[in-house]
Amino acid sequence: MTATATIENDLLKAERLTIRFGGLTAVSNLDLLIRRNELVGLIGPNGAGKTTVFNLITGVYQPAEGEILFDGQSVVGSKPYRITARGIARTFQNIRLFSSLSVFDNVRTVFHLHLRGDVRHALWRGRAFLDEEKSIADRVVELLEIFHLEKLRDAPAKSLSYGDQRRLEIVRALAAQPKLLLLDEPAAGMNANEKTDLMRLIQFIKDRFRISVLLVEHDMQVVMGICERIVVLDYGVKIAEGTPDEVRKNPKVVAAYLGD
């Protein structure tokens, strides 16, 4: 592979990423690479800094040091909504849906990113507006169907079961048509069967939409099954990286998880 081909194949590249909260270095000197259409796992014990990495990538936090390149351009210093528009969408560890909006509207809202018309269209409500709203509605339903949520489309998000809420968050993130999808413990609180189903679904959407996925998960077994590559964090430091097999055998990883 030539050098340029490699760069073009890199979707996200974080270098020497560091952030401190007071005396605590939550993420320290982290290098992270995600290639196009790759499913990468990010694991580590409680408080390892996984969610903080998400917050750094999505612009919620600014790194003290380091650089984040997305599609070859820096996202450091950009506002979260701009980063989303550029192609990074996420879910939250502690579910953050638009609770009073319906399932349908939770997803629909995100389509404003791809609107051709603006406020004037909404006020005038002409043909162009109605056509666009119709095509958005079709695409929302299409996404909901993948996750078997179309039957709940008119229910307010807060009335959904825990598992459905988690899946709705993924659908909502997909509506942003991201190149990179960040999932923060999407299977938390699910039983083993639900977890397996969800992991299959994640693999399916990755291929269907040709996106990259960075998946945070507590349960090592779950991640091992589907990830192509795994990055292990402990106390903000990357202690291992490699294929599931390599990571599983790594003594540092075993120690980190046993000490947990």
Partner: peptide, 21 residues
């Protein structure tokens, strides 16, 4: 409107709204 649901999104969860573009 799709545009206008954003007002309610801001009310429901500002952080999520920002993360959704």
């Amino acid at each position: 409107s799709t545009y206008g649901r954003g007002f309610i999104a801001v009310r429901d969860d500002e952080i999520a709204a920002e993360a959704m573009g």
